[in-house]
Structures are given as structure tokens and as C-alpha cells.
Design a protein around this nucleic acid. Structure first.
Lengths: 214, 214
DNA sequence: CACGGCCCCTGACAAATGTCATGGCCGGGG
DNA sequence: CCCCGGCCATGACATTTGTCAGGGGCCGTG
């Protein structure tokens, strides 16, 4: 339990990124209760992560996935190149299989969903700081099962644009494609996702985390 | 925690309901830092609110809207009738106008969105406990602007079912209606929401909090 | 009672959506 | 080299969706 092993050594320096101020503040309170942890920066947007990290030089960054400006995965990647010594622990509301995959590819050391017990968070931070990987085992299994996205680049792009809920003509305009082409990509996506119409396809792709990025 | 230093009066007894364990735990940490607040119960499902409240007899209940079992609004209503002396403060991720309206109708004393600064939460709790109302002013304005849902019962029901993303035939089957009728309701909903197709109508209705309940 | 609102159904039509066969383009093997 | 497979694009075609104009039944209210 108590991380007294480190005795008087320097505490682990933390950066917190979450767009919901209340949650962010609550996490600060939670983590500040630990003797060996110290929150040195907190931000509410993905594109503020790297600047803040440059200023505060944290050991570990806790990044939410859903953030304005830049999503947590992209922020993780940016942070890895900007401060390679800083480990990343991704925290998210949704246990989307694709999120985990992308997070790992982006160089994250850990992945925690928001319905894990609060007790475990501090430990996860310590493990990550120690160079270990932290991953929810059930989620890891799901990720393996879901596999990598079967969607082609164009298909994901079209699907992503279609999320806003516009007509085919709108999409065609926005993507500089012919309407027929858009329909074709949508049709392919529908087939690959096993859905029966556009809306379903979007939901499936979203739940698998295949629509992330950009 | 401290030895009753500030103990002029008994601390405010709190019940916390949020389905995300991590957030719930963090909120506990946050609120426990206040001398005059004491978390006496925490639950992760809407249908556990009343039983837990019966056991712990809280002064104020913090309820999240998005919860399994029973949504926070319904839980608020149930709690008001079960323990009329217990005030309710609704906390939610989404500042949907309809949520606020429904929360107030359900007897809540306060409504806070999760991106308000963490500092203000304890004060909100105190205000609510003192019998005052706590409402985000911008959200209140939006609520007035959005008005009450223009959708008829059947229309909302159809729209709610359509959320899952099925074909008209599916909806007709699920609701025991003729396909034509379903299309009519959808068409009406599309008209009233000012949308251009089913998907948009669903999004609009959802954002306004018109699809709550059941 | 008569009226208006909501609900349910029907049927027909226009418009959007989904499917398919086809062809061009490119890069990696035989 | 040529062929094959993946991706992209396109237009014709079938299906689904959305709209409209009806009609009947069931309340609640003036």
C-alpha cells in the first residue's frame, strides 16, 4: 500500500490533462493524498499538454482521450517526442479496443478506464513511472479480438465526416468526391462493419475506436 | 479527518452516485478535504441510490445523470419521495438544456456540469444544504431558450428506439407499429427538430435532452 | 355536443441511400 | 515483363427513407 519504499526521495512529478475541470480537480485531490506523488501541472486541452510539460517537466503524464484541441492519443505521441523521458498513462471514459491499440502505438505506457477503482490509480502511476506497462486485461483481450481496423483510409475518412450527420451531397462536397464514390465507400464500410445502414456503421466503427485521429 | 477542530456543528452528510468508479473516488477525495463535509455513502448505479440513502441518511445527494439501472434524474425523483429531507445536487457531463429542466421538475435543488472548477463544488453542496438553489446561469439561459420538448410521446419513443440504429422495419417490429406510422412519427420529429434526416433529428433531440427517461 | 389534439393506419410519390459491375491506377510478386 | 490484388472512382440500378394527403378512433375541454 504505502509507497514508503522511496522514503525521502523526490516525489513523482505528475501532469494531468482532462477537459472536465471538476474531474481534473478531483483527480488532483485524489493523487495529492499520496505522499510520493505531486501534481505539477494540469491542463484542460490536448494542445496544451506539450507546452505545459516543457515548463513543468513531469515524470508521468495522465492524459484523457476525449479532449478539445488535440485528442489524448495524439497528445501522447507529441509528448513522447518532445519529452522522451516522460511516461504516459492514458485515462479514458470509454474502453474502446482501438483506443488502447492506438495509445500503445503512440508510445503510452499504460491505459486505464475510468471505472477502475480509485485505489488503483496511484499504483498505476507508480508502475508506469517504474517503467512497467499497465493495461486492463479484459480490455487487452477485447483489443486482440477486435483486431485492427478493416477500414481503408478513405472509408474511415468518409465515415468520420459522415458522423456529423449530413447528406451524401454534403460529404461529397466536403471531401471533393463524387456522390457515387461517397456512397461506394459508405457501402464498403457498412459491409465491413456488418452494419445495415450508415448510422449503424458509424456506431460500430466508433465503438471500436476506428474513427480516431485527425 | 482532523480531530473535530472545526466542529461547531455536525458535518454535512453526503451521498455520491457516479458510475465511473475512478471519478467517484476522486470526488470523495476532493470533498473529504473539506472539514464540514463527510461522504457517508457512495454508489455506482441509479437504482442503488435510494437503498443506500435509507441506510446512511445523507443531507445531500450528488447524483450523476448518466448511470446504469436508473438515470440520475429518475433517481432524484425517487429519492425526493423516499427521503424528502435529503436535498439533491445533480452533477453531469453534459449541459443539456432538457436535463436541467427535468432535474428541477424531479425536485433537484442544484445542477452542476462537470467542467465547472473543482473549487466551486463544495460551495455548491453547502448552498444546496442551506436550502438555496444552485444553477449554472448560462445553462439556465439555454434552457429557457430551448424550451420544453416539442416532441409528442410517441415521437420521442420512436426516436429513442431509432437511436440504436435500425431500419424502419426493425423499429416497427420493436414498437408494434406499422412501418408507415413509424415513418410518419420520424418525419414529424425531423420537422420539429429542424433536422434533415433521421440521424440529425436524433442528435438534436439528444443534445437538447429530449430523449431522457426509460 | 363539437372541437382540437394526439395516435394509428394506409397508400402513393419523390428523394436519398445502398449495391453492383465496371474500369483506371499503382506496387509487388511470379 | 505481365498479372494480381488493393484502393479509388464512377454511373446505373434497386431499396429505403422521408413527405404528403388522406381517414378513423380516442380523450379532454369549452
Amino acid at each position: 500500500m504505502s509507497a514508503s519504499g522511496e522514503g525521502r526521495s523526490n516525489p513523482i512529478r505528475l501532469l494531468l490533462a482532462d477537459d472536465q475541470a471538476l474531474v481534473r480537480g478531483a483527480l488532483v485531490a485524489l493523487l495529492s493524498m499520496e505522499e510520493d506523488l505531486s501534481v505539477v501541472a494540469e491542463v484542460g486541452r490536448g494542445d496544451e499538454v506539450v507546452p505545459a510539460a516543457r515548463r513543468s517537466n513531469p515524470d508521468v503524464a495522465l492524459l484523457d482521450v476525449e479532449m478539445p484541441g488535440l485528442d489524448g492519443i495524439a497528445a501522447a505521441a507529441a509528448l513522447r517526442t518532445a519529452l522522451p523521458t516522460c511516461r504516459v498513462l492514458v485515462v479514458t471514459t470509454f474502453g474502446r479496443p482501438g483506443y488502447l491499440r492506438r495509445a500503445m502505438e503512440a508510445g503510452a505506457s499504460g491505459f486505464v478506464v475510468k471505472d477502475t477503482p480509485a485505489r488503483q490509480l496511484a499504483d498505476a502511476v507508480r508502475r508506469v513511472h517504474a517503467g512497467l506497462r499497465v493495461v486492463d486485461p479484459t480490455l487487452a483481450a477485447e483489443t486482440l479480438a477486435a483486431g485492427v481496423s478493416p477500414l481503408t483510409d478513405r472509408e474511415t475518412e468518409v465515415l468520420r465526416t459522415a458522423r456529423g450527420g449530413g447528406t451524401v451531397a454534403d460529404l461529397a462536397g466536403a471531401l471533393h468526391l463524387s456522390e457515387g464514390t461517397v456512397r461506394n465507400h459508405l457501402s464498403a464500410a457498412i459491409g465491413k462493419t456488418g452494419a445495415r445502414n450508415r448510422a449503424e456503421a458509424i456506431r460500430v466503427a466508433e465503438q471500436n475506436g476506428w474513427l480516431l485521429g485527425e
